[in-house]
């Protein structure tokens, strides 16, 4: 039993260490799977496409970690769409980013956004508000 226990502890330790280390990387530095991480240019292009038809709006650019699965991110769209000020949402799995377009009279509360993302099971690492 002892060798099995030792092996299990080793597996758990190795797993936990790699997972913890990952949080220390910034998004741009982290590029283990290039197919999963598009370039910054692609992210910019995506943002420009998102705001293309917007005017008199505010856009919250929300950096999210743990958003690795489409099925698991469904709640984000559903939750924010309940807000009458929300015009549209874009969930970008590859960049771990959510774009939320609000009407310009919305008083955006960063803490509220973080809590709503957390209610879906992910964590927010940064929010930038842009006026369109």
């Amino acid at each position: 039993m002892q060798p099995k226990l030792t092996l299990l502890i080793f597996i758990l330790f190795a797993f936990g260490k790699s997972a913890s280390a990952e949080t220390k990387h910034t998004h741009d530095q982290h590029n283990h799977d290039t197919t999963a991480t598009p370039s910054a240019a692609a992210a910019t292009e995506r943002y420009e496409g998102f705001v293309e038809d917007l005017k008199d709006s505010k856009v919250a650019v929300v950096e999210v970690i743990g958003m690795v699965c489409d099925f698991c991110a469904r709640g984000i769209e559903k939750t924010f769409n309940k807000d009458e000020f929300v015009r549209k949402i874009d969930v970008d799995l590859a960049n771990g980013r959510v774009l939320i377009a609000y009407s310009s009279d919305k008083l955006i509360n960063r803490e509220e956004i973080s809590e709503l993302i957390l209610a879906n099971g992910q964590n927010v690492t940064g929010i930038e508000i842009k006026k369109i």
Partner: peptide, 13 residues
Amino acid sequence: YLLNRKNTQHSQR
């Protein structure tokens, strides 16, 4: 009950 969750940029446990 979710006992533990660890979110990172590219993974979830």
